[in-house]
Design a protein around this nucleic acid. Structure first.
Length: 277
DNA sequence: CTGTTTACCTGGGGGC
DNA sequence: TGCCCCCAGGTAAACA
């Protein structure tokens, strides 16, 4: 799942323990988690010291001395966490960084193997993000940017919010939660959004993401933070996963449909789908 | 160029 | 218990 709140929670956990720590060695158990070959990784990273941890959207950047950085994306089931030296590894652990505090190691685990690491050598995170055409972080997006992106397309509103070039960080779960709280249907043609609605939408995005960060993210199954703890926001989901249940706002029934190729939960009664009356 | 579908990979759950 | 099918939080390549 990891969307912005989960990645931010991991980033905060790593920020509190990684900076200043040196990589003594690393082991790769699965080539597909690395954009470069394992030997390049090992030779470039061994002996380096972590300096800083950053996040933009769903990307993590582990900054190292010597002008190096690791761009990490967890995709669907990636986990990045600190493990004690005693803790064993299962078959889904693909990468282990052995650290010079010799009590812990940094572990990358990923059941579906969609995620992974890219070594940035001389490229800054900012340049990397620009090359990917990533939009502003969802916590920083301005109402005018949101309105402009909506006005220039014929897509449905949910497709726009999921588009990482428009804003970076929203995934399937938080998009449904945001749209419900904003009273807007995922099916609404994005071009019909009013300036006022775009303003409210930007505020709702920020409010939902900050609350989810406060709860340390949403754990439906795989997600764990940097200390391997579950999140708590799953108890506060209003629509996601609630097909057939009563809408907590109007008492209507939560529907599940497919929008932009994704399972989508919403309340047709209190989420506006058509032009304003 | 825009927008939609598919592929990537593994596991879990439901139906039989 | 087992087999088959469908579904899953993300992205980007392939396609129309």
């Amino acid at each position: 799942m990891p969307e912005l709140p989960e990645v931010e929670t991991i980033a905060r956990g790593l920020k509190s323990s990684l900076p200043g720590i040196r990589i003594i060695d690393l082991t790769c158990h699965c080539g597909s988690a690395l954009a470069q070959d394992a030997e390049t990784f090992r030779s470039r990273l061994t002996g380096r010291r972590f300096t800083e941890v950053r996040r933009h959207g769903k990307y993590l950047f582990l900054m190292l001395d010597g002008g190096l950085a690791l761009a990490v994306h967890l995709r669907m089931t990636g986990q990045l966490y600190l493990a004690s030296s005693k803790q064993g590894r299962d078959k889904h652990v693909h990468l282990e960084f052995f650290l010079d505090n010799n009590a812990r190691r940094l572990v990358y685990r990923d059941v579906r193997k969609f995620g992974g690491f890219l070594l940035l050598n001389g490229t800054t995170p900012r340049e990397f993000l620009a090359a990917k055409d990533l939009g502003p972080d969802a916590l920083q997006v301005r109402p005018e940017e949101l309105l402009h992106a909506c006005r220039r397309t014929r897509r449905q509103l949910k497709a726009v919010l999921l588009d990482q070039r428009v804003l970076a960080g929203l995934g399937n779960i938080y998009t449904d939660e945001v749209l419900h709280r904003a009273g807007l249907s995922p099916l609404l043609p994005a071009g019909e959004l009013t300036a006022e609605e775009a303003g409210e939408l930007a505020k709702t995005i920020r409010r939902v993401l900050l609350e989810a960060i406060r709860r340390k993210g949403t754990t439906l199954s795989d997600y764990r933070d940097a200390e391997q703890n579950r999140g708590g926001f799953q108890s506060f989901l209003l629509v996601y996963g609630r097909r057939g249940e009563a809408c907590l706002r109007c008492g209507g029934s939560i529907h599940k449909i497919r929008v932009a190729g994704r399972g989508t939960y919403f309340c047709p009664h209190c989420q506006r789908a058509a032009s304003m009356p």
